[in-house]
Amino acid sequence: MTTNHQTSAPTKAPAKAPAKPSWLKVTYDQKKVDKMTDLLKGLKLNTVCAEANCPNLGECFGSGSASFIILGPNCTRACRFCDIPHGHPKDVDLLEPLRVAQATKKLGLTHVVVTSVDRDDLPDLGADQFVRTIHAIKKLNPKTTIEVLTPDFQGREDCLDKVIAAGPDVFNHNMETVRRVTPLVRNRATYDTSLHVLDYVKKHAPKNMYVKTGIMLGLGEKDEEVYQLMDDLRAIDVDFLTIGQYVQPGPKNYTLREWVPMSRYQEYYKQAMKRGFKFVASSPLVRSSYKAKEELEAVENK
């Protein structure tokens, strides 16, 4: 593989955090954000937007869109890139699925993204709550398309079967990074388990269910490692790929290696499209669920 540029990704942590680039500028309309925050609080719902302190929160909340995180707010894993609290998990709230469905209706969402924290403490690893949530959303919002962003369920196929059977429109599970960097940033999750999850879902899901994954850049990955990941994903026929910039949540998290220049996002976009993904989003502020609705529409209207 030849590319026009040299990989300069430093693999060692820099001594001082580099200044934030200008594309991290986001607008913020407090009135709109407050309105959304109040609605979500009223329904006692968590969003990955707020829990992970997403830079796109102002834009998404401002336009009335949000991604729900169920079974939280505490996660049983402590991945080094992540801002979601690691701690003792709470009891499963059996009314949460209904509230997600109600919020979807209140916000008039035509596409809804549901993700969860990891629940290694539960016998079903949280799969049943995904199923209940999908069913509740469908009942109250029959026209809304549903995207799930799931944990690896420790690779357990019975969990994957349940979620597939509930019939989301998009099944997303994030690889997060290239093979070499995975053990440096993920906790109890492996590259091969995540590949297996995507492979299993693709093989067992109906043809009209899209399989999606995402990675972060700026963790010290190299071009050839990213291309290897793309090849691994296409070998199992993954449909959608999202690529965005890692932003270090705090001083205790995995140290940001670099702000990846836009030219590399563009090159990765080209390389990914060449490999046959149905849809690729590659830009610094892209997150797994960022503009997920537009993504699905783009593919469906092709």
Binding site: L24, K25, V26, T27, Y28, D29, Q30, K31, P55, G250
Partner: peptide, 20 residues
């Protein structure tokens, strides 16, 4: 209303705050 008044740096972003 809507004009950017100032910019603030938070952990994950540079927020442009608009006038109300």
């Amino acid at each position: 209303t809507g004009d950017v008044l100032f910019e603030v740096e938070t952990e994950k972003a540079i927020s442009q705050v608009e006038s109300q």
